[in-house]
């Protein structure tokens, strides 16, 4: 009898993913989105971006990031290195501007482009919309280090996303721990790892995000410091703010 119960338990554990429907997987993504987005308040922090390229050494960029996820807005001001000081990004819904204080001009840029030539993309700084942008093709249970995770295979349902295919590891606390980004044909392009989160006012913020390019010997680490959920003035999300910051 005990033996049968044991077998039944094992079967339940291993067949667990098959009991979940696509809608349940979407719920996992929605919960992961909710934890990675800050919809009920503004968010600001200092991002230190260290980019290492084989043969070219290490480049460090320090930026102030201001997010208003509820309005799909962000402003990023580059503080270091001195040669790029004053450069800035302003995202207002679907439009992303890049400001160069040298030319004092704003240029359109894309969320899919690299941020300051690092392995982070401009889309990595905005709110998470995985559930909205991707369909879950398959799911399985797995372990990632010490974390028990859902491993979800995702495929984009629109052309606006940076990567058309993804694999995503979501731990049982619905925090994204790792992603793999793929091309349309299934070539691995980038691996992202978020091993630990800091908690502030009950919300989760990554301590560091690691990006590893698959096709070139490059990696980037973004360390997030001085996080804050205090309200940010509306003027921060304007072109005038970028111009003033660039002076």
């Amino acid at each position: 009898m005990i033996k049968h119960r044991f077998l039944l338990t094992l079967m339940l554990i291993f067949s667990f993913p098959f009991f979940l429907e696509a809608e349940d997987y979407r719920a996992i993504l929605e919960k992961a989105d909710a934890l990675a987005s800050y919809l009920d308040s503004d968010f600001s922090a200092e991002y230190t971006i260290v980019h290492e390229k084989s043969g070219s050494g290490r480049e460090t960029t320090v930026s102030a990031v201001f997010r208003r996820d509820s309005d799909y807005k962000y402003t990023i001001i580059v503080a270091e290195p001195s040669i790029n000081r004053g450069q800035g990004y302003l995202k207002l819904k679907d439009t992303l501007w890049f400001y160069d204080p040298e030319s004092r001009r704003f240029n359109f840029t894309s969320s899919k482009e690299r941020f300051q030539n690092s392995n982070a993309r401009n889309s990595d700084f905005t709110r998470s919309t995985l559930a909205q942008d991707y369909d879950v093709l398959s799911a399985s249970r797995t372990t990632l280090g010490t974390f028990n995770c859902w491993l979800l295979d995702l495929e984009a349902n629109n052309d606006e996303v940076t990567y058309p295919k993804m694999k995503i590891w979501v731990s049982d606390d619905y925090l994204v721990r790792k992603t793999e980004d793929y091309s349309l044909s299934g070539q691995l392009l980038r691996t992202t790892a978020i091993p630990s989160y800091q908690v502030l006012e009950g919300r989760f913020i990554p301590r560091a995000v690691y990006f590893f390019e698959a096709l070139v010997d490059e990696k980037t680490v973004i360390s997030i410091a001085k996080p804050s959920f205090r309200a940010i003035p509306d003027t921060v999300f304007t072109k005038t703010f970028l111009e003033k910051s660039g002076q």
């Binding site: 899919k112 984009a156 052309d159 606006e160 940076t162 990567y163 058309p164 091309s183 349309l184 044909s185 070539q187 392009l189 096709l215």
Partner: peptide, 16 residues
């Protein structure tokens, strides 16, 4: 070698 391109709709695609 791997050739990486953007499709007509802007998605990343690759070929060997």
């Amino acid at each position: 070698v791997v050739l990486k391109v953007r499709t007509k709709t802007g998605q990343i695609n690759t070929g060997n």
